[in-house]
Write a protein that binds this DNA or RNA. Structure first.
Lengths: 236, 236
DNA sequence: TGCTGGACCTGAAGA
DNA sequence: GTCTTCAGGTCCAGC
């Protein structure tokens, strides 16, 4: 059993759940979102990830000499229904850009996404290995979507203490940890394992996957996506 | 220092120079020329090289197991001002054609080329690694252009002896020699190195880059581009 | 075959 | 001016 299966939904019974959600949504934190361009939903079958977000939250170079960086990697994201979506994530040297390729067109079709619609990305607040993807129609505020509604709720619930963990991936992960979700299979629906392996041991240290993480109070960084992506790319 | 730097312009001071030229132009020999199609100067950003000339003078498969053939290669051409132009040169299986892609559109813009204009390609008579590119307006004879004027002059000066070297590239180059100009930087303007490494040693042998080349008198081949390209692609 | 996706390229726009 | 980003393209191998 993988470490992720151990750690899934450890707060399932300790946090009030929004009835729209199936899986510890209160512990998702927003990373970034993007208003989809015509190309993102067209025949190019790829999503360009704005470089600033890619390098901050979805590093290809996995903290060290990981060879997967060259040829890209597979990332798994859970959607609002708990379904797992796998996308190939890579860097295109020619255009100096980060892209989701393989699997992206299926997602666009499944959700009937159009240009101007918004996709957003989240991760588990404590388990950075768990990534989430959501979407909403263009023009909609973020609350009508169930997932993003809770995303808001999570934001409200964020304490000053935990905001210290809202840092770019590589700042809290050592080079020895493998990248989130690569080639990992998640169960189709909500997890059931409740054996906790993430335990808050003091006000300043969290043991996460066998690693003690210091949560420095002096790390003051705004939440990664507090007000959404003020996109330059608005269509319609 | 590369072999090209050694061998550049070794005849600079031994041959009368056309005052329009900057760099041993008397030793350029025409390879082929092409009347540009609308596509060649349009948004496709590529020049189709007629297959017969491509295979004769710009072989992608560099005489052996060179891996650069698969992904194409970078070729450098000097223009009439001595400026170096790099083009990606490759073979498109889908259309069974040879093309210059990357860099081509810049050249078209820089020279303000239109459909019907003519581009021509030359190489150094003794140093096949040096390639040249030139152009003229549609309808112009080849003499008004400085470069092509000298090209004519060179042709006149060609002796029966030297015409034995006017052979397809692969006939005089072994598989051990790397391809011309790949990733090589030329100085922006005329070369200054005058140390000769090309030495005529007898009436039948030329030492070129450390290789003795036999110049058989019975090799009778017409000059590669005696009268220009009798193009099928004439516009206007 | 047609479609997906992998790698490449360019032009426009902004910094 | 130059440099970077990225939207909108290309070709083509594989399925």
């Amino acid at each position: 059993m993988s470490v992720d299966n151990y750690s899934r939904d450890i707060y399932h019974n300790t946090v009030s759940m929004n009835h729209h959600q199936n899986d510890a949504v209160a512990y998702r934190e927003s990373l970034f979102e993007k208003s989809l361009t015509p190309s993102d939903v067209g025949k190019l079958n790829r999503l360009v990830i704005p470089k600033q977000y890619a390098e901050k939250y979805l590093p290809l170079n996995n903290g060290g000499g990981d060879m997967t960086a060259e040829k890209g990697m597979l990332l798994s994201f859970e959607d609002e229904s708990g379904k797992s979506w796998k996308f190939r994530y890579s860097y295109w040297n020619s255009s100096q850009s980060y892209v989701l390729t393989k699997g992206w067109s299926k997602y666009v079709k499944d959700k009937h996404l159009d240009a101007g619609d918004v996709v957003f990305f989240q991760r588990h607040r404590f388990d950075f290995h768990r990534l989430f993807i959501g979407w909403r129609r263009r023009g909609e505020a973020s609350y009508p979507s169930a997932v993003s509604a809770v995303s808001q709720e999570v934001h409200v619930n964020t304490t000053a203490y935990w905001s210290g963990l809202t840092t770019p991936y590589r700042q809290v992960h050592t080079s020895t940890s493998s990248y989130p979700n690569i080639h990992q299979e998640y169960s189709q629906y909500g997890a059931v394992a409740e054996t906790p392996t993430v335990v808050a041991r003091s006000s300043r240290t969290v043991r996460l996957f066998g690693v003690n993480l210091e949560c420095h109070g002096d790390v003051v960084e705004p939440p990664p996506c507090p007000d959404g992506y003020n996109g330059q790319h608005i269509y319609y």
